[in-house]
């Protein structure tokens, strides 16, 4: 089809990129600045903060803890959340609206309160606090987001396709695997990514429902109380760079997926 240049949306997209990158560029600059205070003009160039960061074992341990938790949460929340999206969009059961509404309630409770409530519940029913409870808590927190991401494509999904697949002799699981899930894939993928990131950055639930779990946000939160030292900025810059490079490596894959979903 014909594509034309639209100056207004193009300008907004450009501005959006500047907006998105401005803080990242800023803290990256500060992470190479000898002064521990976040002000311009910069006072020089140093890699001291990075050296200090890599010498401090706590950040490495916390990173491992956070990735472990976030990956588990991603898997569980994506499966459960996708299933629930089917329930919300497709199910024909009594009181579905009420049940669907209940399913989204965790979205409207402030996370801190959710965290405290979860801790009390876990302790009351005798679940030992630890990695497992943090993961469980994060699944409760992240699943509604996954459901929302999957619901959008599911609403536009044409059920006639299922019927067509059935007519062609596909069983329910074959239909799901070969027809339904591939079509929903962009939504599921975004949901999974979101679940990972939500868990990766979450502090309150990890603090309240974890025991002996020092996830990265917990460490950062605690460090921040004495001024978010530039080592944390160095960490942020470093991890962003690592992820950006990783993203470049998988970009062709994403591109293919995007083409496929057109």
């Amino acid at each position: 089809m014909r594509r034309e240049f639209h100056w207004f949306p193009a300008a907004v997209t450009g501005a959006m990129l500047v907006y998105s990158l401005l803080p990242i560029v800023t803290f990256t600059l500060f992470s190479f600045n000898p002064s521990p205070f976040y002000a311009f003009p910069l006072t020089g160039f140093t890699t001291d903060w990075y050296v200090k960061l890599l010498a401090d074992g706590r950040i490495g341990d916390s990173l491992v803890a956070s990735v472990t938790i976030a990956a588990s949460v991603m898997v569980a929340a994506t499966v459960i959340g996708t299933m629930f999206a089917f329930f919300v969009v497709r199910a024909a059961v009594p009181f579905k609206r009420v049940l669907a509404g209940l399913g989204f309630l965790p979205l409207v409770v402030p996370v801190l309160v959710l965290a405290a409530g979860l801790q009390v519940t876990f302790v009351e029913i005798g679940l030992p606090l630890g990695f497992g409870t943090v993961i469980l808590g994060h699944v409760i927190y992240a699943t509604p987001f996954v459901t929302l991401m999957v619901m959008a494509p599911l609403y536009r999904y044409n059920p006639a396709l299922d019927a067509a697949a059935r007519d062609l002799g596909a069983g329910p699981f074959t239909t799901l695997r070969l027809v339904t899930l591939p079509i929903l894939w962009p939504g599921i993928r975004s949901g999974a990514l979101l679940a990972f990131l939500l868990s990766f950055n979450e502090w309150a639930i990890a603090f309240f429902t974890g025991r002996g779990v020092n996830s990265l946000p917990m460490l950062v939160y605690s460090l921040q109380r004495n001024g978010l030292p530039p080592t944390v900025l160095a960490y942020a810059a470093l991890s962003t760079a690592v992820v950006a490079i990783a993203a470049l490596a998988v970009l062709p894959l994403v591109t293919r997926l995007l083409r496929g979903s057109k």
Binding site: Q119, V120, L129, F208, G212, N214, S222
Partner: peptide
């Protein structure tokens, strides 16, 4: 010595009170 970080003791007290803070 393992650490359980907090920035305000009240956070930890809330946790200890619920039990199993370790």
């Amino acid at each position: 010595v393992a650490t359980e970080y907090f920035s305000d003791p009240s956070e930890l007290v809330t946790k200890l009170r619920a039990g199993g803070a370790g």
